[in-house]
Design a protein around this nucleic acid. Sequence first.
DNA 1: GAACAACACCCG
DNA 2: GGGTGTTGTTCG
Length: 801
Amino acid sequence: MNIATVIVDVPALGTDKEFDYLIPEKWIGIIETGMRVAVPFGPRTIQGFVTGLKNDSSFSEKLKELKEPLDLTPVLNEELLKLGEWLATDTLSFKISCFQAMLPAAMKAKYEKRFLRINMDDNPFLDDLFDGKTEITWKKAEEQNILPALHAQIKLGNAEVVYNVKSLANKKMRKVYQTMMNNEEIILLVNSLPQNAINQKRILEYVIKRQAIQYTAKELAETGSPQSSIQALVKKGVFTEKSEEIYRDPFAHKQFNRSAPLPLTEEQNKVIAPILETIESENYETFLLYGVTGSGKTEIYLQSIQRVLDKGQEAIVLVPEISLTPQMVDRFKSRFGDDVAVLHSGLSIGEKYDEWRKVQRKEAKVVVGARSAVFAPFENLGIIIIDEEHETSYKQEELPRYHARDVAIYRAKHHHCPVILGSATPSLETFARAQKKVYHQLTLAKRMNNKELPHVSIIDMREEMRDGNRSMFSRELHSKLEDRLEKKEQTILFLNRRGHSSFMMCRDCGYVMQCPHCDISLTYHQYTNEMKCHYCGYISFVPSTCPECSSNHIRYFGTGTQKVEEELYKIFPEARVVRMDVDTTGRKGAHEKLLEHFQSGKADILLGTQMIAKGLDFPNITLVGVLSADTMLHLPDFRASEKTFQLLTQVSGRAGRHELSGEVVIQTYTPEHYSVEYAGDQDYNRFYHQEMVMRKVGSYPPFYYLTLITISHEDLMKTVSTTEKITKYVQSRISNEAIILGPVASPIPRINNRYRYQCLIKYKHEPELKPTLHKVLEHYQQQYIKEGLAISIDVNPYMMM
DNA sequence: GAACAACACCCG
DNA sequence: GGGTGTTGTTCG
């Protein structure tokens, strides 16, 4: 086996294939499938993944030798390599992008270009160019404007360019000092030291006191002695100096109280039985764990995982990014201790890398993390759990556009283990599959403490308006807020800002400030006092008079959290409000701090957007107010009703989870809409049936699969004509059963001066579709990429914009 | 994606 | 001729 097949780090269609490389003699037997290697590629050296080993190549020319391995052990096992290939075909992405998506960001290659001086003769000009050294980085040369001069020297044979592949990953190391001396020897040494060597003496006294075999640099430094005296002792042979890898521990400052399994209710016992059976019999099966909020889903997860661990297997738990609050992590850490690795975007690149390495080295058995944690490199998986299964954050919007649920099921089939999809409001796709017995449905209908679900009142804001109430708080919400403030109970106010955020409009002529590069209105940001485009980042001043008609009746509309906060202070000056949105939670850890502040009772009202809808479980919350339930309802998205229902149900579930019972007030302009009405009744079943009718009529999932093709280009005509051509071509290659919508302009027809057209394909079974789309990409990518034509294909899209 | 060869163009 | 900018090809 002296030839390696390699997928190289060039995300392009022409390079999305295996390249053969000779393995140099000294690496034979060391280089394995799944390792990262540095390979020469054209004139450069780049990173690649070894996908296989073989003895002969069909490549007709002479093979190049690969340069060196970048790992000691493979970073991708056979399963993950196969998964990557499948993912690439399934989502129409490049293999290299899929491999990279499976690994922590720290493993992405960093490339470095340097000039090396070859001619060492006395040459003042060369000395000057290289600043007296033997090499200079490309970056430095560029800054100093000496690139042309260096190129000239390369031609003369006085210098050359070397390419380096560096791993972004840096293991955190620390110095440790070991001593082989016993007490007597040390005392002898202390006595032989000169009088003034107090620092060395102090260290040795510490050593005698501690009697440890090894000391960290930090420990020795704490004796108050400088680094130089430690080095002096190393020289004298007291210590041997070593480096060892340490893990960055994001939870180092935290104490986790060990928790024991809780006794299960009768209902929970019924539900967990088939899961445990599947774990025992090592079969693949997908379960839908459908349970209302507070019904004890997490305990089911924990005890299922316990069984998996008892069998010596491993577990993956996916949670939506937003709910990776300490609360969730706490529950897993306190049950499974150091067996848990946590992977989420709040960690630094290095921290993520360390958590990943814990898994790779089998030091962790349970991974709790967001979407990408589904790729955790376990080899003996016993269960995959996806909590809040309906969350759209499980779909990655960038390449590769995969859905964690699909990956989970793929991996579970490979490992013969169960997948649990947990939700109080399952996605229609999942629930429909459970109804069809594709998934095994398990239901938890009762809340654990037998608390009743909170009472929900739906307020028609049109009526409030008619009765002369122009405030954003209905009379009912107002009086309930007053009541809670008096009783010192807590309230959550939820503002569904997605849909329309605050924009400027002239009351006289109706002018709305638009982004000059995108067909979207600018959003007003109070904290910076700017008008900002959410798509291209364009920033403009805030007009004081209307640019169209010069009227000074230009005002901002839509309700931002800041505006609600101001209003709250006006009505309830004594209320202590915590505001949570992108502005107040930007900094790392801010999220947790605000929640802690609220939890400890230092605030009366928690005001926020989406991010407060999930996972919060505070005993003193007795009122939940939704300020405008229907802003999302009018988005051009067939899932708008589903999302509205889910969100309203989720927020309502925040109230009265403990001793105190709760109330929910939902304010809306469309109380008659079924998603609002059924959310008010907390009636998932009726919502499901109504929504399924709508989906059937519209030929949407779960009745049809979708694939969305979006074409964008600076020139409108080019965009339209290309979309037309592609649509026609696709139509000619697939059956009449499929429905093709388009070409039509995208919901946002222009972003960053690029026009956007799209074509939506609805289908049930089209084996030719993916090959056809691949051909489309091949055809156009080659032909048009230089003109700036962009084609994006999203299989099972969640964002229709 | 990036390097480079091939090509076109311009210089006055 | 030579410098400069653009385009197309290729990478094992």
